[in-house]
């Protein structure tokens, strides 16, 4: 092959590979980005009904119901509440009154059917999404006067 042809072959292969990679990534991105909604957004019908998303907030006190491996609990951002239905074992750090993030779909009856419940592995940690939901909920309801700042690393036990 002449050097000029070789150069073309190279550039062609490169462009092809790059194009494929970009197409793949964009395609995967589009279908796999998981958006996040707060209970308030869900109640005001901003959340999609045909695709999975994440909901975050705090598990309402005394809202957990069990029936074998099926659980139901209420996620609240202090302004609004959404019932979550989940079949499976909850993570170790799942607790009433603590932050939680669940991933799944919204049913026609307004119950969020989760296929994944996340509570991260640090007792002092609130998932950022849950924290965000609480903050937004507070803005909506106006009942919470203070946004509090957690301690720096040395302030927690």
């Amino acid at each position: 092959m002449k050097p000029r042809h070789r150069r073309f072959a190279w550039i062609g292969t490169g462009v092809l590979a790059l194009g494929t990679a970009v197409a793949l990534v964009l395609n995967a991105f589009n279908s796999n980005l998981v958006f996040f909604f707060t209970p308030t957004q869900i109640v005001s019908r901003e959340a999609p009904v045909d695709r999975a998303f994440r909901i975050g907030g705090m598990v309402e006190e005394r809202s957990l119901q069990r029936e074998d491996t099926r659980v139901r609990f209420v996620v609240t951002d202090t302004a609004n509440r959404v019932t979550v239905d989940y079949v499976g074992i909850l993570p170790d750090l799942f607790k009433e009154g603590r932050g939680v993030v669940a991933q799944g779909r919204l049913g026609a009856d307004g119950v969020f059917v989760a296929d994944q419940v996340l509570a991260k592995h640090d007792e002092n940690y609130m998932p950022p999404e849950a924290a965000e939901a609480m903050k937004k909920g507070a803005e909506v309801s106006g009942s919470l006067s203070k946004t509090l700042r957690a301690p720096a690393a040395n302030g927690s036990p």
Partner: peptide, 18 residues
């Protein structure tokens, strides 16, 4: 622009063809 997360399905979808 809001909170989003990119979960395992994205990585799996991209990794196999790569």
């Amino acid at each position: 622009l809001g909170k989003i997360s990119v979960g395992p399905p994205y990585f799996e979808a991209v990794f196999v063809p790569l």
